[in-house]
Amino acid sequence: MTALVRSWQAYRAISGAWVRAAMAYRASFVALALGQVLTSGADFIAIVLMFASIDTLGGFGLGEIALLYGLTGLGLGIADLVAGSTEQLGRRVRDGSLDTMLVRPVPALVQVAADQFALRRIGRISQATVVLGWALLHVDIDWNLTRAALLVTTIGSGAVIYLSIYVLGAAFQFVAGDAAEVQNAFTYGGVTLTQYPLTIYPVEVVRAVTFLLPLAFVNWYPALHLLGRDDPLGLPGWVQAASPLAALALAAVAGVAWRGGVRRYRSTGS
């Protein structure tokens, strides 16, 4: 427990220092954060433009797709803010700065995630939040306490799922440091895939993001419940509330992979 508290304190201290450093150049910070709002919002503008010509896509209306979009974007945004720096792991192995982290009494993962902390990544979070807010005003949800709780846990679970993907990607870089870009296929690729209703993909894809890499739990299953839609795979109803389980399972896998990566690094020296 104290180890956890200590890790959190170290994370806060390191990321805080980076925030202060960034704030010294306030104009740059604002420009970069706005740039991120725009870049991450480009996909949503495209969807809106599509809906100038259509009423539904894959059987879902604009509001419903905005709900999917907002949930997955928020999940990725939070994970990217918290742990986006882990993408740098390959470089840290190459230039040896990981060694410096390994001789400190705080877990290397915490240091890798906190170092180069970029508050400008809040751009994606705000953009996704706005879309989610707009969606909640425009879709017909029969609100009750369970559904409200489901919405909140979905955001948390989504963040944990994407966080786990970042950690998995970092662990992969212990093996193939130059292949950092593969990670983008799962983080940005994942968010692109899940911002549309899964009905537009072949059923194999839906199965893959349900059972293999649980991206569908970032938004799809809980959204089906919120919207009162039928599951095209016909899975049991509890699956729609199972996002926290999927998140925990993936986090466990990511934890094992990260430990494996560090062990490999410490036993091969490369």
């Binding site: 170290a10 201290a13 390191i14 410096t100 705080v106």
Partner: peptide, 29 residues
């Protein structure tokens, strides 16, 4: 133990020295 690796920095490159020292206080508690 304390370690100084010659070619790698244990300091934060973009931060003032003062901030690096303050961070190390947190890290080493």
């Amino acid at each position: 133990i304390g370690v100084v690796f010659g070619q790698r920095s244990g300091l934060w490159w973009d931060l003032p020295l003062r901030d690096s020292f303050a961070l190390l206080r947190r890290i080493y508690d």
